[in-house]
Computed example of a mutant assay.
Amino acid sequence: MKLKTAFAAAMTALACASAFAQGGAYPNRPITLIVGFPPGGGADSVARIVSEKLGRVLNQSVIVDNRAGAGTTIASDLVARAQPDGYTLLLATPSLYGSDQLLYKSARYDGEKSFTPVARWAYSPMLLAVKKDFPENSVQGLIAQARKNPGKLSYSSSGTGVVTHLAGASFAQAAGIDMLHVPFKGGAPSIQAVGAGDVDMTFGTPPSVLPIAQGGKLRLLAVTTTERSPLFPDLPGMKESGINDFNFTIAYSLYGPAKLPAEVVQKLAEVSFQVLRDPEVKAKLEKQGNIAWPTKTADEFRTWAVTEGKKYKVITERSGAVGATN
């Protein structure tokens, strides 16, 4: 059986290499970028801004395909099973390396074995937002309320185990408080629930939260980074808010299926680095609340992805989410 499996794998790799060689210089047809989040959120904004410029540099279209659901595992599984030819790629967070397998039985892939790390693209601080009539105007006040009413203050997320849940759970642990987690099927309904006053707060990505905040339906209290973010200088960071050693950001990175040809990986890594240093791209990302954070090489990114994935795994284990989704 092992011999048959090894032979099949070798034949697949050989077929992909042959097809790649016959097809000429990469890329010679459109590339599909799978995103495991719905349109309008942080991942989607990064995907569309970077892929538009990436396509121009590569002289091929890069088509963003949103495949939300099951905590991004639907999208990840799709790419894990795709042909390793460089035409099906994935934009993902570090949860790919460990957290997904803890949370979802449907996650049949292995982060390190099923994917080829290519490049880190950008990161974003998250925003702590409360309903407009929330009685407190500071994080310190929010914590005091939570301590008076353990388990009563609620925070929404776009699903159990996803990054918006992990941010809230990590915040509660760091602050030493107990809050009620209210999961929704997606970022939009999660934030709308706070805007409607049905949930007390949320920890959201800037592209998701800012439009609702600007419309006056919720208020921003802080960023989830240790210090103030240059993107939101008027909002206090966590250290200033009385929570030391708390820093939660969400990073978006590019992956391909396992056994992606080395020449494809190198080209995508080099072009990603070039694109993310472009002033126009950086400005567009910052306007949406994201900061360009390119890696120079795929090897550099691989080391970072594995290390960061282990951190996410620990956060997930501590969040209480394990077992809630299976």
Rank of each mutant, 00 (worst) to 15 (best):
Q60W: 02
T249D: 12
A144T: 14
G24Q: 05
P84F: 00
I63P: 07
L102N: 00
G323M: 02
F301W: 05
D65R: 15
R48Q: 13
V199E: 06
I191S: 13
L102A: 00
K113P: 01
T93M: 02
G40C: 07
A8L: 12
R120M: 04
K132E: 08
G176C: 02
A19C: 11
A324S: 15
D133L: 08
W304F: 06
S106T: 14
L220C: 07
M201D: 13
Q140C: 12
G195V: 01
V118S: 03
G111S: 11
G151E: 10
V118Y: 01
L235I: 01
A92E: 15
G186I: 03
I315F: 11
S99V: 03
A283S: 09
T93V: 02
Y255L: 13
K296G: 06
I34C: 13
D110M: 04
D234L: 06
L285M: 02
A324T: 15
V46L: 08
T226M: 10
G23F: 08
R277I: 04
N247L: 05
W293L: 14
T116P: 00
A119N: 01
V118C: 04
R120Y: 02
A146F: 12
G323T: 01
A82Q: 01
S190N: 10
A6W: 14
S272Q: 03
S319L: 02
G41E: 13
S272N: 07
T205Q: 14
F37N: 15
